[in-house]
Computed example of a mutant assay.
Amino acid sequence: MSGDFPLVFSVTSGKGGVGKTNLSVNLALCLARKNKKVVLIDADLGLANVDVLLGLTPAKNLFHLFHDGASLGEILFPTPYGFSILPASSGVSDMLTLSSGQKLELLEAVDELEDHVDYLIVDTGAGINDNVLYFNLAVQERLVVLTPEPTSLTDAYALIKVLKLTHGVEHFKVCVNMVPDVKMAKEIFARLHQACDTFLSGVSLDFAGFVPRDPAMRKSVLAQKPLCETQPDSPAARAIDQLATTISQWEVARQLDGNIKFFWKKLLFC
């Protein structure tokens, strides 16, 4: 990572159930182990589960920022794994669509972190609803997660298509999750690449990595602890650690693209 500017990236998907939040949690842990300051935002605002996966019960979450005037410092929750989370609420319909004012309020609040974070990871919801699109526009890089399921491929393409055609986003990183081996991962990536090449002129996809299907992952979910903590030598944990190493080599994009971004003030003057 270049300079002292935080790298902000989303972990996102067109379809639920692709392991996106598990990946976010374990990437946060792996990056924190590289002596980096990491904050993970649970941006699936109405169906939050980062805290559940970690077995944690924060007293406050982003609902309290918008509705009770809580400060970011009151919500930011340190985990036992070397990174902090900004938890969201679950089952609160008010959070399913943020108003323009709330979106700006969140950006302003997160500005407090700019000198205290190396990586800001944004775990979005799935699909193409307003919140998902908003968070994917507010980051510098997007890591699209998909699995071998055909519906996962078509929904990943749909997300990329909306971001490209409606908002002009052209660059995406791709991680293929829950695959038997790297060969299938690259085949699935090639299918997505072909669809984008054929129907979406100007879109650039980079294969960031893959995570093999691993029974150890389910055990870690049931234990409510990150896989990279409980079984660091398992195939999936090793693959996620490799993905974290790849991410640590991404360059921070310093140009604005017309969308208001996290730490946009600092971007404007750097």
Rank of each mutant, 00 (worst) to 15 (best):
A244K: 05
R218F: 05
K219D: 02
M217Y: 04
A237I: 05
R238W: 05
E229A: 13
V252H: 09
A216M: 08
D233I: 04
A223N: 12
E251F: 09
A236D: 02
P215H: 07
S234R: 10
A216T: 06
S234I: 09
A244S: 12
Q224L: 09
V252W: 06
A223H: 02
K219V: 02
Q231I: 03
R238V: 11
R218D: 05
T246L: 14
V252M: 08
S248W: 03
T245M: 14
A216C: 13
Q231V: 04
A237G: 08
Q249V: 06
K219S: 04
S220M: 06
T245L: 15
R218T: 07
T245P: 02
A223Y: 01
S234W: 07
C228Y: 00
P215V: 05
E251V: 09
P226V: 02
I247Q: 00
E251N: 14
C228G: 10
A216N: 11
C228W: 01
A236W: 01
A237D: 03
R238E: 12
S220I: 04
A239F: 03
V221T: 11
P215Y: 05
A244N: 07
P235W: 05
K225P: 00
E251W: 06
W250K: 06
L227I: 05
P232W: 14
V221E: 03
T246N: 15
R218G: 10
I240D: 00
A239L: 04
Q249P: 03
V252R: 11
S220A: 15
P232F: 13
P226H: 02
A239M: 07
P235Q: 07
Q249D: 13
P215I: 07
S248D: 14
P215E: 12
A237V: 06
A237F: 08
A236V: 02
L243C: 04
Q224N: 13
D233W: 09
M217R: 03
R238H: 07
R218M: 13
D233R: 13
K225D: 02
D233F: 10
D233H: 12
A237S: 14
D241H: 04
Q242D: 14
Q224I: 09
A216S: 14
R218H: 12
E251C: 07
T245D: 15
I247G: 00
D233L: 12
